[in-house]
Design a protein around this nucleic acid. Structure first.
Lengths: 220, 220
DNA sequence: TTCGCTGTTGTACGACTGTAAAACAAATCT
DNA sequence: AGATTTGTTTTACAGTCGTACAACAGCGAA
């Protein structure tokens, strides 16, 4: 039988094509039905090629998880990090970024949850998860500290860490339910809701963070 | 070939045996590797029996998800609902219950995440998830309201609903990371951390909720 | 142009999957 | 006790899975 025509792509391009096809398949079909043939087809490639770029299908899925987490933490770190903004604005932007595109996404939550479901079982997944969590915690802590000092509130490292953990919990939980889109409330309320709750957690005066909401809307 | 000896159990017992074996398998192996034969073996039963109790394996897995969510919301509703407690204590107990046994459990989070990963794809999972979420939201709202009025804070339904959403987010997020046990901090700090954050979110004076922590420790 | 390298395809294989249905055993009824 | 019902096991089947491997095709070097 004559073989199909094809073109050779750069190694990096093929790898990310395969990884993105993997994520797409896992999100749509679940980890179980995301078969090698299905993924290959979505990447416009034949199934055998997978083993030329990854030592196994499991290896590819793990790489896809790491790729996803890298994307998300990178997106979070960019939020409001460009210009030299007032500390309240920088913090508000990081928080609000989780409740707007592209982070507020049913696909992303589905992927995140699917992978988290394997953290307890597979040490490789646990490592990736822990790393992503730690990075976001550090980012939050770094943004919380200057806000606390600017408002004359206690800002020792222990307290900052605790507040970062609490804030991360709030963001994670709201992000999950908001992204799933169950229709119990309007997801557009989430940024304001999250910022108001964050003000309370940090014991800041009302509207310290929420008054920067308009800026968020403008740039969409 | 002569068949294996067996004993007949009540229908309900067999059903829950199969469901719990399903949950156990899904938690340990993931949705993909939790095969019918594996589940049947763990339930002390042969594989063919599954189709005598469920119309398909998918049906059994869905039932297992509903069973899990029912267990968890029931456990949450029982927390501090027995005697007539002061409203602050009742609220604190519901919150703290998520950060102690049996709810703070790596197995439970693994299962929860695995199923949530399918919510976007499978409408049946979405229904189960929405129902569980709505119930917990209602429970939180019911416990928040009397606390707010007792402290003379605005307690209209709209505000209570918003606060319940935020509080639920906080609890969910902290519960997930805490249960996964990544070793980044001591999970025993979580009850106090969550209660302090809840005080802030609800704009209550400090120690309104946290001073009831000792009671939690005593009864374990 | 021809050679050699390797990215890529197609196919074959064994293991495993969920399901159907027949054979049988335990409990219930008469 | 014998007959009947039905919960349970066993076996069989078609399909899919991940993987291995040989054959081929595209591309740069000689």
């Amino acid at each position: 039988m004559t073989k199909r025509a094809y073109s050779r792509l750069s190694q990096d391009r093929r790898r990310t094509d395969l990884i993105e096809a993997t994520l797409s398949c896992v999100a749509d079909l679940g980890l179980d039905k995301a078969g090698a043939r299905q993924i290959a087809e979505r990447a416009g490639v034949s199934a055998g090629l997978i083993r030329h770029y990854f030592s196994s299908k499991e290896d590819m899925v793990r790489s896809a998880y790491a790729y996803l987490m890298g994307q998300m933490t990178a997106a979070a770190e960019e939020s409001g990090a460009g210009e030299a903004l007032p500390p309240e604005v920088a913090l508000a932007e990081v928080i609000a970024a989780n409740f707007a595109s592209p982070n507020l996404s049913g696909v992303k939550v589905s992927l995140w949850a699917t992978f988290v479901g394997r953290v307890r079982v597979d040490p490789a997944y646990a490592d990736i998860h822990r790393e992503g969590y730690r990075e976001f915690l550090d980012l939050l802590e770094a943004r919380i500290h200057p806000v606390l000092v600017a408002h004359g509130r206690p800002a020792d490292p222990t307290r900052c860490k605790s507040l970062a953990i609490a804030l991360n919990g709030l963001i994670d939980g709201l992000w999950i339910e908001g992204s799933l889109g169950h229709g119990l409330y309007d997801a557009r309320r989430l940024p304001g809701l999250a910022l108001a709750a964050a003000e309370g957690i940090l014991r800041l005066p009302d509207t310290t963070l929420t008054r920067h909401l308009a800026r968020e809307d403008e740039r969409s």
